[in-house]
Design a protein around this nucleic acid. Structure first.
Lengths: 197, 197
DNA sequence: AGTGTAATTTTACAAAAGTTAAATTATACT
DNA sequence: AGTATAATTTAACTTTTGTAAAATTACACT
């Protein structure tokens, strides 16, 4: 049986499989062979398209920056609906992405490599937003906007990364819509105690 | 030069080096050789004391449960001073431990292994505490105590794990006492908006 | 001093994972 | 049909890492 050749699709498959692998296992944990399997190719073929594991990894990042979903590079500017906004779209893909940032954080600390700065700007613009809010008097004066931005980021990502812990606390899976509803509501209520409007 | 032999100390060295390695690089990322180096022994010696990597890992966990610091197994029950309490003691060691929990979370998700449940009880007692608080009317009725416990855990650990992100937001290192003061104060102020007393 | 035992080193190996190079096969173009 | 080029497979190699077994050395005890 002659396999139909299609370089473009093969590359796409590889890239997609690679993203999945890196997102779920980090850089070190990712296996070229596993990527190849999931892409439906021999692992050696990957070296025809990329110099090596590192380059493949960077290709995934680059691809994410261009053709990836907006939430990967931009941070929501919407005041009240932070929680909803974050949970609305594409839950599964976003969750994987969040986990990936966790891998990056841990691995970069482990081997001193400073991690990729593509997300930096997005985060800073996020801070800028909360500064505005404070100037408008929406925020209480005793809460620094930088720290609030950090807190919100923590609250919206933590349950995804630590789904086991979230489960111990709440009894239900993070992926469970019921949990997402509760958590979303909780965050909304929480901000209700802080933000005046 | 004849090396002075001291099995007890050697074992302690190995265990300590192992803890460091596992805490900073996770299970997979940890290298027996690196552990051996830091313990000042040949790596093969490790196999004289432990059957293999896995057993060494478990020894580290067991050791932590017994001779480890209390914060590794217990969660603070103190109402107002959550933030302070957590930052007061042994910052560096605790930070490593927190990172370790992050490794556990990611690695266990990556290869389907359910992670060690030693911490589970501690977390549940934490929830129990907040339930009490709610019953006493200290907490607003729209905030579920389980979720609050989760939120607090997130807020107190996130900056440690994601020190890079914390730095982008705030400009200063998580390990910097100045950051710790600000963050601690922030959390205190935040809880001031929520907890009535 | 002599001997058994435990600690440590030396030597060696096996499996896993990444990578390279050569051989094949499909496809587009003439 | 013939050929160049790119896609894919086959075969082979290197490095890294974990592990096992044998050889040595120190120490305690008689």
């Amino acid at each position: 049986m002659g396999k139909i050749r299609n370089a473009e699709r093969t590359q796409k498959n590889i890239l997609e499989a690679a993203r999945n692998e890196f997102f779920n296992k980090g850089f070190k944990g990712a296996r070229i062979e596993s990527i190849a399997e999931n892409a439906g190719v021999k692992k050696q073929l990957i070296y025809h398209y990329y110099k090596g594991k590192k380059e493949l990894y960077e290709a995934v990042l680059a691809n994410l920056a261009t053709s990836g979903p907006e939430w990967a590079t931009r941070v929501p500017d919407n005041p009240q609906h932070i929680a909803e906004h974050r949970y609305n779209v594409n839950s599964k893909e976003r969750a994987d992405f969040i986990k990936f940032t966790a891998w990056q954080a841990l691995e970069s600390q482990a081997d001193q490599t400073s991690w990729n700065k593509s997300g930096e700007l997005a985060l800073q613009s996020y801070v800028a937003y909360w500064k505005e809010q404070k100037d408008k008097g929406v925020l209480p004066p005793d809460l620094e906007p930088e720290l609030l931005a950090l807190a919100i980021t923590a609250l919206t990502t933590y349950p995804i990364i630590f789904s086991d812990i979230a489960k111990i606390f709440t009894g239900s899976d993070e992926s469970d819509p019921e949990f997402q509803r509760r958590w979303s509501e909780f965050l909304t209520n929480l901000s209700g105690h802080i933000i005046k409007n």
